[in-house]
Amino acid sequence: MSPEWNKDNPPRILVVDDERAIQRFLETVLAGSGFSVQVAENGRLGLAAVVAARPDLILLDLGLPDMDGVEVIRRLREWSATPVIVLSVREREDDKVGALDAGADDYLTKPFGIPELLARIRAALRRALPQPDEPVLTIGDLQIDLGRRLVSVRGGDIQLTPTEYDLLRLLAGHAGKVMTHRQILKQIWGSGHLEQPHVLRVNISNLRHKIEDDPSRPYYILTEAGVGYRFRAA
């Protein structure tokens, strides 16, 4: 299910939100940007629409009239990997972590800017595409040679420990997406180490010193305070 998107076959986006103003606004803007848009006004209808319409991406509000958005994600993730971007007025870190841990791909707080939203949508859609077997990832001045496990910044090679390399590859592989502490810990160190955030912190710090120009103002690895990390999208 990886169609080549074009004018006749635009990416389909499902908007699950009960606010009429937001629905209308998103419909207009997304249609104008070349997406096909469908709207569901509560969680139940949203899940049904996913089954019926097979959208390529879901924009989900957390405060739905019939069930909580996090619950929608959880049910969806039981059988579908469709990318989900949460749009919510809830701005507390706990809410973000909750949604991301449940399986959301990204989180935007209302109010948001349209350029930001479109960028996030594109990044998510891109990640959802089957990755071409590209041996080298290039983000700005940073190059990661996946085949040879080599990393270089502006042409100069950098020595990374195996953990640092795995961490970098994980983050870079999800460029643009927020990864929570839990998700990272689970994938790199395994589920037994979920309660040891300092291990992650130390490795991120080391990694930054090796790849960033100014570790106090990082360019590649961005911290989402209280939530996790995000690798800058190319």
Binding site: D94, R201, S205, P215, S216, R217, P218, T223, A225, G226
Partner: peptide, 17 residues
């Protein structure tokens, strides 16, 4: 408060970002 150990460098970076 959600108290956790924080790298102050990271904290400053976050604010600047």
């Amino acid at each position: 408060l959600k108290i956790e150990d924080c790298d102050i460098q990271d904290l400053v970076g976050c604010a600047l970002t």
